[in-house]
Simulated assay, not measured.
Amino acid sequence: MEKNMIGLDKQQTSALSTELNTLLANYQLLYMNVRGFHWNIKGRSFFELHAKFEEIYNDLVIKVDEIAERILTLESQPVHGYSKYLALSAIPETLDVTDGAQAIRHILDAYRTLLIKQRQILSAASELGDEGTVSLLSDYISQQEKETWMLNAYLQ
C-alpha cells in the first residue's frame, strides 16, 4: 500500500478526492446562485436578505478554497472551470430569482444536498483515518444544520 505525503493510502485518497471535487462543484454552484440572490432580491425583506445572502456567499467562498486546498493536500487536483462544475454538481444553476422566500428555499434544497454528500464523504474519510477531512466536514455539517434550522424558521 503506497502512502501519500501525509501518510494516507494514495489509492483511497484519490477516490476521496474525486468525491471532494464533486463537493467543490456543488459549493461553486451554490456560491454563484447565492450571489445572484444577493444581487437580484426585491421586496420588503430586501435589506435583511441582501445582507444575509452576502454573509452566506462570503462563507461559501471560504469553504470553496478550503475544499480545494484539502484536495491538494491529498495530492490530487481540484477541478476548476464552470463547465466542469455544471457537469459534476447536483445543485442546479438557479437564475433570476427575485423573491426572498423562493431564494431561501433554493438555499435549503442546496444545503440538504450538501449535508447528504458531506456525511458520505465524512464516513469515507473516517474509514481512511483522514482526520483532516473529517474535521473540516464535521464543522461544515454542524454549521449548515444550524443554518437550515434558522432559514426554515424565517420561512414560518
Rank of each mutant, 00 (worst) to 15 (best):
T22D: 05
R70N: 01
R35L: 13
E66Q: 02
M1A: 14
L122W: 08
L155Y: 09
L8D: 00
D109V: 12
E48M: 14
R35I: 12
L74W: 00
E145T: 06
K63T: 09
I71K: 03
S126I: 05
F47M: 14
H80I: 13
S45Y: 13
L16C: 09
K117T: 14
R35N: 11
V61W: 03
S142H: 03
D130K: 01
D96E: 11
W149Y: 03
L60K: 03
K3I: 08
D109T: 15
L74C: 06
E55V: 08
D130S: 03
L24Y: 10
D130Q: 03
G129C: 04
Q77G: 13
A153R: 02
E147C: 07
Q28H: 09
I107H: 02
N152S: 15
A15P: 00
V97F: 08
M1I: 08
E2V: 14
R112P: 10
R70G: 00
Q77T: 15
I71F: 01
Y111Q: 12
T133E: 02
E19V: 05
H50F: 09
K42W: 05
A110G: 15
T148V: 12
L95D: 09
L115K: 01
L95S: 11
N4A: 01
S45V: 15
L20D: 01
W39L: 11
I41P: 00
E93M: 06
K3F: 14
A68V: 06
T148W: 00
L114A: 07
T73K: 04
A103Y: 03
I107V: 15
L136D: 07
A103G: 15
T73C: 09
Q118V: 04
L136H: 03
H106S: 12
T148D: 03
S14N: 11
S17P: 09
H106D: 14
D139P: 11
D99V: 08
H80Q: 10
A90D: 15
L60N: 07
K3A: 12
Y111E: 09
I91E: 04
D109E: 15
I141F: 11
T133L: 04
V34L: 07
E66H: 08
S17L: 07
T22V: 10
Q156G: 07
I71Q: 02
E55N: 12
L49I: 05
G36S: 03
E54R: 14
P92S: 14
V79K: 06
T18R: 02
E69S: 00
L155T: 07
H50D: 02
L115T: 04
L23I: 10
K52M: 11
S123P: 02
G81A: 10
L128I: 14
E69T: 00
